[in-house]
Measured scan of single mutants.
Amino acid sequence: LTVQLGNLEWHFDNPEQALKMAEELAKRYQLKVEIDNGTLKFK
């Protein structure tokens, strides 16, 4: 699973870790998370 923020990307083997990080980033920057083809992206 990949977490993508702008041109930064983090790759996780563990989806739970990816979701946890995505939630933290979304909270911190007040963004919405969307999943696009196995990639978590922020809007």
Rank of each mutant, 00 (worst) to 15 (best):
D13F: 08
A26D: 02
E24R: 15
Y29E: 02
N7R: 14
T39P: 00
F42W: 04
E34P: 00
N14H: 08
L19T: 06
N14L: 09
T39H: 08
P15A: 12
Q30L: 09
A26P: 00
N7A: 11
K20F: 05
V33D: 00
L5K: 02
L1Q: 04
L8D: 04
K41D: 03
G38C: 12
W10T: 01
N37K: 09
V3W: 01
N14Y: 08
N14R: 08
D36K: 09
N7M: 11
E23F: 14
I35S: 06
Q17I: 11
D13V: 09
Q17H: 13
M21D: 02
W10K: 02
K27I: 08
L5D: 02
H11M: 05
D13P: 11
Q30V: 05
Q17W: 10
E34I: 15
G38K: 07
M21R: 04
L19I: 13
H11F: 11
E9M: 14
L8Y: 14
E16M: 13
V33Q: 02
V3E: 02
A26M: 08
N14W: 08
H11G: 01
A26L: 07
E16R: 11
L40T: 00
K41C: 11
K43S: 13
V3I: 11
K41S: 08
A22S: 04
K43H: 11
K32Q: 13
G6Q: 03
Y29D: 02
F42Y: 03
L40G: 01
Q17V: 11
E24D: 10
K27H: 09
K43A: 11
A18V: 05
E24Q: 14
D36I: 14
W10C: 12
A22N: 00
L40N: 01
K43V: 15
K32P: 03
E9Y: 13
N14Q: 07
D13I: 09
P15R: 13
E34D: 08
Q30H: 15
E16D: 12
L25T: 01
L1C: 12
T2W: 06
L40E: 01
Q4H: 07
F42H: 03
Q30E: 08
A18G: 07
K32L: 14
L19P: 00
K41E: 03
Y29P: 01
H11N: 04
E24N: 12
M21K: 08
E23Q: 13
A18M: 06
L31I: 06
I35V: 10
N7Q: 10
I35C: 08
M21S: 03
E9W: 13
K41Y: 09
K20Q: 10
Q30I: 04
Y29K: 01
E24A: 14
L5T: 02
K43P: 04
P15N: 07
K41L: 06
E24V: 14
A18F: 06
R28A: 05
W10G: 00
E24K: 15
Q4S: 08
V33N: 00
L40C: 13
D13Y: 07
E34A: 07
L5E: 01
E24G: 11
W10L: 08
Q30F: 12
L31K: 01
Q4T: 09
Q4L: 12
K27A: 10
N14E: 09
A18S: 02
Y29T: 04
T2V: 11
T2E: 03
D36H: 13
K27Y: 07
G38H: 08
W10R: 02
E16G: 09
T39C: 13
L40S: 00
I35K: 07
A18P: 03
K32D: 09
L31G: 02
L25H: 01
V33M: 10
Q4A: 07
I35T: 05
Q4D: 03
I35D: 05
N7C: 11
F42V: 15
N14T: 12
E9A: 11
E23N: 13
E16C: 12
K32N: 08
M21G: 01
K41Q: 06
N7L: 11
L31Y: 05
E23K: 10
M21E: 03
F12G: 01
Y29Q: 02
E34K: 05
K32W: 09
V3R: 01
W10S: 01
L8Q: 11
N7S: 11
K41R: 14
G38Q: 06
K41N: 05
Y29S: 02
L8W: 15
K43L: 14
E23M: 14
Q17K: 12
T39Y: 14
F12M: 03
K32Y: 11
G6I: 04
G38T: 05
M21Q: 04
Q4Y: 08
A18I: 05
N37I: 03
L8N: 08
Y29F: 12
A26G: 07
F12Q: 00
K41V: 11
F12C: 15
H11C: 10
W10M: 07
L25N: 00
N7Y: 12
Y29N: 03
V33T: 03
V33H: 02
K20M: 08
L5A: 02
T39A: 05
K43C: 15
L1W: 14
P15Y: 15
K41H: 08
E16T: 10
N37E: 09
E9I: 14
A26E: 05
E9V: 15
H11S: 05
E9P: 01
E23I: 12
V3Q: 02
L31H: 04
T2G: 03
T2R: 10
L8S: 08
H11W: 11
F42P: 03
T39G: 03
L5Q: 01
F12P: 00
E24L: 14
R28S: 03
R28P: 00
K20E: 09
D13M: 09
K32E: 11
N7G: 12
E9H: 11
A26Q: 04
F12T: 02
G6Y: 05
K43I: 15
E16I: 12
L5Y: 09
L1Y: 13
R28D: 04
L31W: 06
N14A: 07
H11K: 09
V33S: 02
P15I: 13
Q17G: 06
N14M: 08
L31F: 07
L40H: 02
E34V: 15
L19G: 02
E24F: 14
Q30K: 14
K27G: 05
L1G: 03
E24P: 01
